[in-house]
Amino acid sequence: MRKITRYTSLAWNFFVFSTKSLMEYRLNFILQILHGPAYVGMMYGILSLAFDRAGELGGWSKTEGVLLFLSFQLLYVIGIVVFLKGVRHFLWEGLRRGDLDMMLTKPVNTQFIVTFSKPDVQQLPLLAAITVFFVRQVWVMQELFTLQSVLLFAVSFTLGLILMYLSSSTLMTLGFKMTRASQVIEFFDKTSDFAQYPTSIFPVSLRWFAFTLIPIAFFGYVPTSFLLGKEIWWFLPSEILLMVILFFINQKAWKEGLKHYSSASS
């Protein structure tokens, strides 16, 4: 219990520190919040146009598609705010500049400090906006949901977030092996964009990837399927199984990576 309190307090301090350093330049802060909404707006524009042309995509109507879009964006922006910026910083410059040396000297789990030390506070307004749109969409469609479907959605959504953390922080360990590995996280980022479409529209071979190696189906499609009662019986067991497998791979990759790391940047 003490450990949990200590790490929660540490994460909160990272958050407060990031907010303070961002607010130092307020005009910059205002400019920096532009990118997220522009990108989400563009992705929504594409999705909306796609549904307007097709009527239905992969067995999903436009209202269902919008719910899937918002559910994925909610999960993804939480990921960005909490840990994805840390992952990106580590791969772009943290590892090469030797920031890891400093982190290794601290009496805190290295993986924790790497992933949670750079919360993306500037995306909080975007997170708030997406939450409002998501709640509104759920409200509009409330007649379709049951208590069971909402609970299953909550479980699947949480598992999806954990899977996103595990897959991104496992990919991050490639940084220990490559001199310049910044594009690894960008590749993950770009692939994740396709989690906002019903996975059923992709060919079977790509669907297999989406449920295993790059588990983007669990970032939006699976949780929303639970909410809409469109789930298949193996969704939840496979989500749990994948999480367990990824956890072990993640721990192994980190141990191996740190063994490989030669300090003073690589």
Partner: peptide, 18 residues
């Protein structure tokens, strides 16, 4: 004039792509 401009550049890159 503005110390950090990358966010605006990214926003315009996304718009450009669209």
């Amino acid at each position: 004039w503005f110390t950090e401009i990358y966010s605006l550049r990214w926003a315009l890159t996304s718009t450009n792509r669209f």
